[in-house]
Design a binder for these strands. Structure first.
Lengths: 224, 224
DNA sequence: GAAATAGTGTCTGTTAGACACTATCAG
DNA sequence: CTGATAGTGTCTAACAGACACTATTTC
């Protein structure tokens, strides 16, 4: 007879806010780890798909639909949850700068954005999960266009470069960055300008939709 | 109240045998999908870690210990198993040419190696799982040294090249391949030669153990 | 010496990385 | 005209890809 197991999804929700990469965490109101910060998540419901469960939690936590969501890894060590056998399928989500302002409908529990470089102590095995998510994001940004998910639909090239710099944790050269965007043709200039700030306005761009195959054909995507 | 779920691990076991990339499949002796071929796997036991369960199944199926094993993805669509809610954590394993001969202690069930380019119909959602595993292997071989896990400890450079060609599905240039190995310094020449065959013997080499960080420092690893 | 595979070097086009100045706007 | 950010081109070193002949062994 096969033992049964309780299944949760945990979602590492990233956003770029006020110039830094941040994660949404919630403070636990109940034991175990009462009062500690944790990655948002919850149990998978009866007859519910894993990704569906993740999207539901995401909606409950942030009010946002239609976000980038990707399965990360499944954590199932017997001792990871003091309540018994709980296996967690971890996901990571990327919110665009706009959506990230609303920490709405937050289930009564306290929720807050934390800078990735100033994290609190975390409940369960959530610290390594977060570290792994960041690692995955760092890798993936270099050969896909996931990074664009952290920006609104229209963005300036400088804003895009800031996102890459934040995630990679190092400065990039402005001219090399823009040259790469040009040769890959992944970005489409708009007529609009960003006129905030007392200086020359920046042209706004959009991500040009390309199939992943096309991206691969053009070579590895993003090592600036 | 959280519904509970049954948890399995499935292991996509790859090996290079008689010049092609092959997978180990077992023929199901019971319903559902009785008589169909399936990826080996089984239920996770009480108090057993996920990777532990995968290694146990691997041992039961092949008799082999100490193999490369990596978590692939977790499949949990509600309809994927007609018996009810069964969530499967898929792994993939790489056997070295040697270990792959022993399909020992195979649990009474019929087990066989299948060429990746001539697969039978598969039970459950195992066809996309297998496709995904191959995809992952193809990607990973280009920036890590996982490919070496498909060879015995000592190997000729031609044998190594064949492994890369099989997985990538295209011929590689012998001189470019060897040049890359040289500049990356990932391979160490031995005194021994491979004297099989009625022709000039090939020098044998060993993988030089390098930390993953080192590999990254030297740039992306394997695009020949 | 024939058959079979091992082993070796060069040239060329592309790409990544370093680097500094002019343009345009608000106030 | 000052402050602030946008926007633009060149040179160089490293790397990828194309390509063909000699070396060593067995039988």
């Amino acid at each position: 007879v096969e033992p049964s197991v309780r299944l949760t999804v945990d979602i590492v929700i990233f956003a770029v806010r006020s110039g830094s990469l941040q994660v949404l965490l919630i403070r636990r109101g109940i034991e175990p780890f009462r009062g500690a910060w944790a990655i948002p998540g919850g149990f998978v419901l009866d007859g519910e798909g894993l990704e569906d469960a993740a999207r539901r939690e995401l909606r409950e936590e942030t009010g946002v639909e239609e976000v980038y969501l990707e399965q990360l890894y499944t954590f199932g060590d017997p001792g990871r949850d003091p309540r018994g056998r709980v296996v967690s399928v971890a996901y990571f989500a990327l919110l665009s700068g706009e959506g990230s302002t609303l920490v709405a409908g937050t289930d009564a529990a306290e929720a807050a954005w934390w800078r990735m470089d100033q994290l609190p102590d975390l409940a369960f095995d959530h610290a390594p999960i977060l570290a792994y998510a960041l690692d995955r994001l760092r890798n993936k940004i270099e050969y896909t266009t996931v990074g664009f998910q952290l920006l609104p639909e229209k963005f300036s090239l400088t804003a895009l470069q800031r996102v890459y710099e934040m995630i990679l944790g190092r400065p990039l050269d402005k001219r090399n960055f823009r040259r790469k965007l040009t040769v890959l043709q992944i970005v489409k200039p708009l007529k609009e300008l960003d006129r905030t700030g007392n200086h020359r306005p920046a042209r706004l761009y959009q991500l040009r939709k390309l199939s992943p195959e096309k991206l691969r054909d053009r070579g590895v995507l993003m090592p600036f």
